[in-house]
Simulated assay, not measured.
Amino acid sequence: MAISFGVRKHIARWQQDGLIDDAVADRLRKDIDNRGSGFGLGGILALLGAVLLGAAIISLVAANWEAMPRLFRVGLIMAVLFIGYVGGAWRESRGDKVFSQALYLTAAITFGAGIALVGQMYHLSGEASDAALLWVAGTMVAALFLRAPVLVSASVAISGFYLFCSLEPANSERLSYLWLVPILAFICAGLVWYTKGKAARHLIALLSITYVFVVRFDLDRVGILWLAAIAGGALFLADALRNRALERLTGWAEAIGAYGFIMLLLALIFFQFDEFSEGVANQVVIGFAILGCSIAGLALSGHRNLAVRWSAYTVFSLEVLYLAFETIGTMIGTASFFLSAGILVLLLAAFVMRMERRLQRKSPKSEVTA
């Protein structure tokens, strides 16, 4: 893995500089070897190949669908499912952690395509969201029995597909997603715990954030933004102020704090551009609140939480430039604005560099953990 290679370079440098002795360096290298999952570039390419293979199977079957006998069509889908799930289980039993996941993913994609193709073949009526629900249910069952992390990630992705299918105006029960998506996310969270599928946790967090703002636009209620801001701020403060307790409870404290911080900032940004779009004064007020939250994020957990740190830097810089454009930029000429913007960017760079020095002094281990 590229990450392991980078860590090995740091270990060699620390050993050469005398920061660690030979025994510690050997133990660190041995720990990297023992913990290495082998899921590097090769694993990513294997999963990409599985997606492309699934798409090829779908395209091939769909292009020749009418020319095939019905029994052969169903048999072909079942054969691919059997090869994907049983073959993946066989490869995993042999210690293969890469191609087994690729076979599982191919079977999951084929299952979704099979639902659509069989429904077309037998002229079954129904909404796309109903097919997505059946797809995610089947994938969850497969993830449960096979204990496959990649199938948990696929279940979360299909849940997101269901969310957007439910937004179609023609859907007769379109608002059922309001309670079904949280249930799907909760089940996926249970599967994450059961399968130890750590990557799916990030997808669940992204699905949750997407769900909040989709509901905001769909129902057009400002209270949802307030709830999102409060929930995001609470999650961020839980990590910032009670990091050890949250880590013991969830084992994922820094990521929870980072996603909560991002949700808080996104809610404030939506307030700025949506709820208070009439008049510059309101936007400036919300802008200062965004700047304040960014600085608070840096002060409270920026010294140890890289995601919070760089989210705060990014939002702070963009917000300062936006406020400058909305206030100063409307009153001066183009050349003067570019001059002011250039000076402002240099000042932002000086601010970031100074903050980096302060944060690194506050946390001497930050360079090692980064």
Rank of each mutant, 00 (worst) to 15 (best):
G88F: 12
A108D: 12
E173K: 09
A154Q: 12
H123Y: 10
V192R: 01
S172G: 07
I83Q: 04
L175Q: 10
M140H: 03
W135S: 13
S159V: 00
L167W: 01
L134F: 13
V118M: 12
A199P: 00
V80Y: 03
S166V: 04
V136H: 06
S100V: 05
F72M: 13
P182I: 12
Y104N: 11
G95I: 00
L133S: 02
T195S: 06
L76I: 05
I115C: 08
W135L: 10
F145G: 02
Y85S: 07
R174P: 03
R94P: 01
F72R: 10
A116C: 10
E92V: 12
L175S: 11
S153D: 14
L81V: 11
K97S: 12
A143H: 06
Q101C: 04
F111D: 06
L81A: 14
A79Y: 11
R174C: 05
K196W: 07
V152G: 01
C188I: 05
Y162M: 03
A131M: 11
V192E: 08
A154V: 05
S159W: 00
K196P: 04
V141S: 06
M121V: 08
H123E: 15
P149A: 05
V86G: 02
V150G: 13
R147P: 09
A148N: 07
S155V: 05
Q101F: 02
L167M: 15
M121P: 04
V98E: 03
K196L: 06
V152L: 04
R147S: 12
A142Q: 12
W135F: 15
A131T: 08
P169G: 02
E127P: 03
L180C: 03
Y194D: 11
I187Y: 06
Y104S: 14
T139H: 06
V98W: 01
F164N: 09
V192M: 04
L184A: 07
V74W: 15
E127Q: 14
D130Y: 09
L134K: 05
V86L: 14
A79G: 10
A143F: 08
F164M: 15
L191F: 02
I115V: 14
Y104Q: 05
C165K: 10
E173P: 04
W90D: 11
G138P: 08
S155I: 04
S125W: 08
L134C: 10
C188L: 07
A143L: 04
W193E: 10
V181A: 04
A154R: 08
F99G: 01
E92W: 11
I115A: 08
S93H: 12
V192P: 00
S153A: 15
E92R: 15
G119I: 06
A170L: 10
A157S: 02
P169W: 00
V150I: 15
G95Q: 02
A142E: 04
I109N: 11
A131Y: 10
E173S: 14
Y162E: 02
I83L: 15
W179K: 08
